[in-house]
Amino acid sequence: MTTPVIFDPATLPSDDNVNAYTFCVELRGSQWFLQKGKMIAYYGRIDFNGVGHGRLDRLLRTSFHSPLHASDWVVAEGEGKMLLADRAFDANSYDLEDGNLTIRAGNLLAFQPSLSLKQSIVPGFLTLIGTGKFVAVSSGPVVFMEPPIRVDPQALVGWADCPSPCHHYDHGYMTGVLGGLRALTGIGGTSGEEHQFEFVGAGTVLLQSSESLMDEVATGAVPQQAGVPGARGSDDGQGGSGSSGRRGQPGHRGQQPSGPRLPGQLGDLQRRFGL
């Protein structure tokens, strides 16, 4: 048992970890983006505004390009020091220098507006581009790996400098009816490790040392557009009514239909307003 350290505004670190699980951000009239509800305490005078706040328009134009995640993010501004933490997960800060890093949406805790946040084309991931500092959490310490590597989907936190990720299925998945049945039903036993993400190319892959994930939040869908991965096409167009106006998009057939859309529904704009 170590003797507890008592912090006050003068002894709290500036933009650094207080302990392995808590990160302290110093604001001097500057702004930080942070995920909603992750602030645990602050000294000074700090305002938290949803990213829809009109005054933040200019900031959003340069740093926030992820409308589907808009309702999960707030902007903190003011003077003081604030502590960020998330479910007692390990928190770490990373400096990005004119780089890019893609991270699981739930693992990103906060970032400086000098970085810009974009949605990755891999669903559920966000990409940060630019120069600046960001804070990410992971269940257990983060391990950095070099591609080529295959990783367990649950252990993946993110990747930097764009190695190209793809799915990898074990050979057994594809060998005949029996193999397929096994994978489908689990009868005969599966190892649970038949499917991985494979990374090749130059870059860094970030892994967490536990397979527990954050709860995923539904973030709506990307615009329904030809060629956009993850865009759930409205399959009712396939019947010949042609109402969706998507001219012959085979290959989108296997994806989940988003369910019937009510007439008054504003597409996925509702998500934007947190409904």
Binding site: K36, K38, G50, G52, H53, F273, G274
Partner: peptide, 11 residues
């Protein structure tokens, strides 16, 4: 009033 639009600050 922003909270009613789901645009609250989260805190």
């Amino acid at each position: 009033f922003r909270h009613f639009f789901g645009e609250g600050g989260g805190e």
